[in-house]
C-alpha cells in the first residue's frame, strides 16, 4: 500500500471541490444552450434561460468563496448571489408576460392556461 489513496497525482480537497463546482456550472451553461435550441416556444425557453442564471452563479460563487475564503470575498459573493436571485425572477416574469401578451407561445403545449377561462363545457366539473 503506497499511500491511503494514491492516484498518481497529488490533489487536495479544494481541487476536488473546485472541479465539481466548475463542472456543475459548466453543465448548467451547456444545458441552457441546448435548451435554448431545442425548446419550441418562448415560454419554455425561459426554463432554459434561468438555469445558468441561478444554479450556475451559485455554484461558481460558492466555488470562489471556497477556494479563497476571506471576509471581503464572501460578502461580495453573497451580494452577487443576492442580486442575481433578486433580479432574475423579475426579468423572467417580464419576459414571460410580454411573451404571453404578444402570443409568442404554442397553446397546444400549454397544460393549464389560467388567464383565459376554459369553455363553459369544461367548467361543468368544477
Amino acid at each position: 500500500m503506497t499511500g491511503p489513496l494514491d492516484l498518481g497525482f497529488d490533489f487536495d480537497l479544494r481541487d476536488i471541490v473546485t472541479a465539481v463546482l466548475v463542472l456543475l456550472s459548466a453543465l448548467m451553461c451547456f444545458a441552457a444552450g441546448v435548451g435554448l435550441i431545442r425548446f419550441p416556444d418562448v415560454l419554455s425557453r425561459l426554463h432554459a434561460a434561468t438555469k445558468p442564471q441561478i444554479l450556475g452563479i451559485v455554484a461558481i460563487v460558492a466555488d470562489v468563496a471556497v477556494t479563497n475564503p476571506s471576509v471581503g470575498t464572501i460578502t461580495l459573493a453573497v451580494a452577487i448571489v443576492f442580486f442575481q436571485s433578486l433580479t432574475a425572477p423579475v426579468s423572467a416574469h417580464m419576459a414571460g408576460r410580454a411573451a404571453y401578451r404578444t402570443g409568442h407561445f404554442r397553446a397546444d403545449t400549454l397544460v393549464v392556461d389560467e388567464f383565459t377561462p376554459p369553455p363553459p363545457a369544461a367548467r361543468g366539473g368544477r
Binding site: S25, A32, P52, I57, D63
Partner: peptide
C-alpha cells in the same frame, strides 16, 4: 450568465 460562469 455563461460569461459570468466563465469568469467565475
Amino acid at each position: 450568465a455563461t460569461a459570468m460562469c466563465a469568469i467565475g
